[in-house]
């Protein structure tokens, strides 16, 4: 156990020594990995932000039913209440609707100039089932009722946003897999070059009794450390980009009276990004070592 620890400590020290001796190459490699990582991580942040917006918006599965002038309101209400898909409903008279518009600052002038109320009476119907298909089906049924002029599914845009976020996630997943492969390839090549530069040292060490483990361990650490450094750099790039982006987001949010801004990754996710990057570096160097050190 102590020997094992010592071997690893020494391998780590030798790997760190290598990295230190080739500072510029180390930095550039870490930068390549960092940039590659910051792309999917940044996309993930944006999507999480969007999702936050989508969830904050009322997700009430509501349908607005506008009535024809002179429709039989009580009869309609009774029929709708009999439908088991209707969880509840509320009548909004045309006068109430106009009154609501009147208190909206921007529209007060417009409303004042109206000669007569152009708005129809309406029901706001809450669906028992929130699924988009169920909402559509309910809207279709309500449209067929006598006295109904128009039916509008209110949460359609929120649903669409949610679908967009889901699609974005898939695309992001594909991008992440692609870039992870790239990261493994970058490390594979770094270690290949490292083996080439150390060719003589490796050959002589083996002739004099170095074990396979002794030769391999520092190379594996090298890939792992490079991955870690790349991961940390990726997070730094992300934090910088986010700070810049949030200046604009905050301005935009303020025009909607909101103090919304995109949050950084939670610390455990950030740690996972760095750890995963280290793992990919290790994987790339393990593949390279088994390929290039017979």
């Amino acid at each position: 156990m102590r020997t094992w620890l010592r071997q690893h400590r020494e391998a780590l020290a030798r790997a760190l020594g290598r990295l230190g001796a080739q500072r510029m190459a180390t930095l550039l490699n870490a930068l390549v990995i960092g940039v590659a990582l910051s792309l999917p991580a940044g996309g993930y942040l944006l999507l999480s932000g969007l999702q936050g917006v989508a969830q904050r918006v009322s997700y009430e599965p509501q349908v607005s039913v506008f009535l024809k002038a002179g429709a039989a309101q009580a009869d309609l209400e009774a029929r709708m209440r009999r439908d088991p898909r209707v969880a509840g409903l509320r009548f909004v008279s045309r006068d109430e609707a106009l009154a609501e518009l009147r208190v909206t600052e921007e529209l007060a002038d417009v409303v004042a100039q109206l000669e007569r109320n152009p708005l129809p009476d309406a029901f706001v119907v809450r669906s028992a089932d929130a699924a988009p298909a169920a909402l559509e089906a309910l809207a279709e049924a309500l449209r067929a009722l006598p006295g109904v002029a128009r039916v509008q599914v209110d949460s359609a845009w929120a649903q669409r946003l949610a679908a967009l976020v889901r699609t974005g996630r898939l695309a992001l997943g594909a991008l992440a897999v692609l870039l992870a492969t790239g990261l493994v390839a970058v490390t594979f090549n770094t270690i290949r070059l490292q083996i080439l530069t150390q060719r003589e040292e490796i050959e002589v060490s083996r002739l004099l009794g170095a074990s396979d483990g002794f030769v391999r361990r520092p190379l594996l650490y090298l890939g792992f450390l490079q991955g870690l450094a790349g991961g940390a750099l990726g997070l730094a790039i992300l934090a910088g980009a986010l700070a810049v982006l949030n200046v604009g987001v905050r301005e935009l949010a303020q025009t909607y009276g909101s103090s919304f801004s995109l949050p950084f990754l939670p610390w455990d996710d950030a740690l996972s990004v760095v750890g995963f990057s280290g793992f990919l570096g290790w994987l790339g160097s393990a593949m390279s070592v088994s390929r290039h050190l017979r």
């Binding site: 050959e203 083996r206 002739l207 004099l208 009794g209 170095a210 074990s211």
Partner: peptide, 15 residues
Amino acid sequence: PYLRRNLGLVFQDHK
């Protein structure tokens, strides 16, 4: 490796 560590080797091309 254990065999080699117990031998002293001087190579023709020094290495």
